[in-house]
Design a protein around this nucleic acid. Sequence first.
DNA 1: ATTTACATGTAAGACGTTACATGATTCT
DNA 2: AGAATCATGTAACGTCTTACATGTAAAT
Lengths: 173, 173
Amino acid sequence: MSLRYALLGLLSQEAGSGYQLARRFEGGMGRYAWHAQQSQIYPEVNRLAADGLVSVVDEGPRHRRTYAITPAGREQLRRWLTDPDDTPIVRNEQILRLFLLPCLDREDARAVLRHQAAASLRELEALHATVGEVGSGTGGGPVPVDLLVAELGLRYFQHLHEWSLWALEQLDG
Amino acid sequence: MSLRYALLGLLSQEAGSGYQLARRFEGGMGRYAWHAQQSQIYPEVNRLAADGLVSVVDEGPRHRRTYAITPAGREQLRRWLTDPDDTPIVRNEQILRLFLLPCLDREDARAVLRHQAAASLRELEALHATVGEVGSGTGGGPVPVDLLVAELGLRYFQHLHEWSLWALEQLDG
DNA sequence: ATTTACATGTAAGACGTTACATGATTCT
DNA sequence: AGAATCATGTAACGTCTTACATGTAAAT
């Protein structure tokens, strides 16, 4: 069901086509929250439309249909977000690899850690660039929630990066 | 394919039955790396046995079969762990919720954050208890890789907890 | 004796991946 | 004209969830 709410969430922030949704999944959403393929998005957004949770608000060139969230969709989204469901499902291939580091000898573990340190640094820098854009669009008003969420991503990759370096030090020492 | 390697990894650290594997998934592995159900584990461990990557090393009471990783299994596991595959898949319902916080009004966002702060603190404390056990089993020798991985979990929930508190402050201020 | 925990499994349906199919518009 | 990008979709196959079925051994 999560894909549903991921899509509703994106559309609640800004209307868009299936294609645009797929592009937005390549950003932060798909990178560290919930991954989805294009071929999964199109059928799901159609189901959302059939269920009245989104509606077509524009038809453009190349058969493009722009969807927007409906009041019913907004209500369902709110219910899901505020419903305190513990035991949330986690599937993270990257963390799984790190979690299984004890299966390797020290030399292999070192190599994986070096690779991880470089990868998390790259992600961190890419996010820094994206967040720069978000931040520049705000005046001196109240803190936009977007910035809080961007900060969560930054901290995540920073903590991963710092742990990788620390773990390498422990192995080398 | 990740479930395969999660199981191979657990069995490479210690032989065990399907039931024991399911129990071990309830710990750190399933909580913040890769989730799996009991009904998924039994068929997969049988497939691993059919493929010669694990083998039955003991049969106990109540039809219990204890599996151990084979050399072929160890080799496949090593290859997967050291193969630098970027674009790893992430599906994290908890992070998705946080990522969609901008869809809520401030009052609802605050409630979700308060809930999140409490949940991550609970996880942190639970992990602290588990790590205490792991740490007590080691003499003064070289740093066991298990401890590095435990530290990763601790840092993850700590950073989540700290971010939740920080985000609440930003909203309140 | 009854309950709890151990132990393994299957079947139906939902969800997700890979690969392919099709065509429109813009850019060079 | 040709290439790149925009745009939507389907079919086959693999993975995961939910719910059920079955029985054994230990604990109270």
